[in-house]
Design a protein around this nucleic acid. Structure first.
Lengths: 78, 78
DNA sequence: ATGTGACTTAGAGTCCGTT
DNA sequence: TAACGGACTCTAAGTCACA
């Protein structure tokens, strides 16, 4: 992907949150990928902020992690 | 697109909200498209729930409409 | 168990014209 | 002004191999 200029901060926060909630749930990327119906490598890319997910993908992730969409996209620590 | 089964409801709510906040702001699809840096026809498709925007596109819309992302995706009236 | 690179294909997003 | 159509371009998203 590489969208270095626009919304880099938001994508990084999203990736950080996905990893945070996933580890809090004590599950691997692979397990999350099963639950969300996404590919394991794609989960990895999202956590590393290398991809820009679609709205429905955000919904899948929020459902699989059992957190609200707002929590998923919240920018923490600033 | 056509994703009739999954997240149809959420996409319709999003489209409805975009239109609602746009009309509340008293601006045309074209004006909104300028502000958001998106194409006029694409705004139309989103309002009609025919497209599934990316995360950064949601952010552009929320910024252009001057509403929070949460307000944009809230499912009302049920 | 996760990251990366290369590749493929479905769909996001643009642009044209017409209703 | 908005909806609709088709034809595009680019990237989201899926799959595989290997580190």
């Amino acid at each position: 992907m590489e969208n270095k200029t626009s919304y880099e901060k938001e994508l990084k926060a999203l990736g950080y949150n996905i990893r945070f909630f996933r580890e809090q749930a004590g599950i691997s990327q692979e397990t999350l990928s099963f639950r969300a119906g996404l590919h394991r490598n794609y989960i990895s890319s999202l956590e590393l902020a290398q991809k820009n997910p679609t709205y429905t993908t955000l919904l899948k992730l929020s459902k699989a992690l059992n957190v609200s969409l707002i929590e998923l996209v919240t920018i923490r620590g600033e």
